[in-house]
Simulated assay, not measured.
Amino acid sequence: MPGGLNSSKLALLVIDMQNAFTRAANPILKNVNATITSARRAGVPVIFSQHGHPDPENEVKTSVIVNWWGASGSIKKGSFDAQLLPNLDVAPDEVILDEKTTYDAFYKTRLKSLLDKENVDTVIISGVLTQFCCETTTRSAFVQNYDIIFLSDGTGPPYKPTLDTIAHGFGKVITCAQMRERLDEIAKDRNK
């Protein structure tokens, strides 16, 4: 059975903190960066996703998400919009899942294999957009038997219906400060 907040087998997922989503990401950036720092001190893997499409113009007929948003409303891989925010705290050795092409960070990416390799039983969800990629990734993680911790002020924009849904049926919704307290406890235990 997954471990939840009491687990020490955690991974922090930082979903799509990219230039395309600056308006949603900037208000939570300080909280996310502070949580990333705490995760590193605790030895918790930090995994970043980066959404993008190799050729949106030609994917309109083959990708439901590109079809939905249109080629001009989709993020082209390698573009300025696809780049992670310049102030996001990404260490050189941390994983960036740049193969993400839909709302779900698990779909056709190496995320599950990375989590399994680290024996992760609980994922911490942060990033943008709350009601799209963060919520979809949460649901996907849940059905794959991961316990979920969803950061209420580490996902943006604030979207109460998603927070209520996650809390009701998918995972524990807490603040970044509460998560950092738990990560600090893990770090202390590691350094004994």
Rank of each mutant, 00 (worst) to 15 (best):
M1S: 14
M1W: 09
G4Q: 05
L5Q: 12
L5Y: 10
L5G: 07
K9P: 06
L10D: 07
A11P: 10
L12M: 09
I15D: 02
F21T: 04
I28N: 02
I28Y: 00
K30F: 11
I36E: 01
V44T: 15
P45N: 07
F48T: 01
H51M: 13
P54Q: 11
E57S: 13
E59K: 03
K61Q: 15
S63W: 02
S63G: 01
I65F: 14
W68D: 12
G70A: 07
G70I: 04
S72W: 03
I75A: 03
I75M: 03
K77F: 11
G78C: 08
G78W: 07
L84P: 04
N87D: 15
D89Q: 13
A91H: 13
A91W: 11
P92K: 12
D93S: 13
V95I: 14
I96M: 08
L97E: 07
E99R: 13
K100Y: 01
T101R: 15
T101H: 12
K108P: 00
L111Y: 01
L115R: 05
L115H: 06
D116I: 09
N119C: 09
N119M: 12
V123N: 04
I125H: 01
S126C: 11
S126M: 09
G127W: 02
V128F: 00
V128K: 00
Q131I: 02
Q131R: 13
F132D: 11
C134P: 00
E135I: 02
T137V: 08
T137I: 02
R139M: 07
S140W: 09
A141V: 01
N145L: 11
N145S: 14
D147I: 01
I148F: 06
I148Q: 05
I149T: 07
I149Y: 05
S152C: 10
D153F: 01
T155V: 09
G156H: 00
G156F: 01
K160S: 13
P161F: 03
A167D: 13
F170T: 04
G171N: 07
K172N: 14
V173S: 04
V173W: 01
I174G: 09
C176Q: 02
A177I: 10
A177E: 15
Q178K: 13
M179H: 03
L183T: 05
A187P: 10
A187G: 11
A187I: 10
R190H: 14
N191Q: 15
K192R: 14
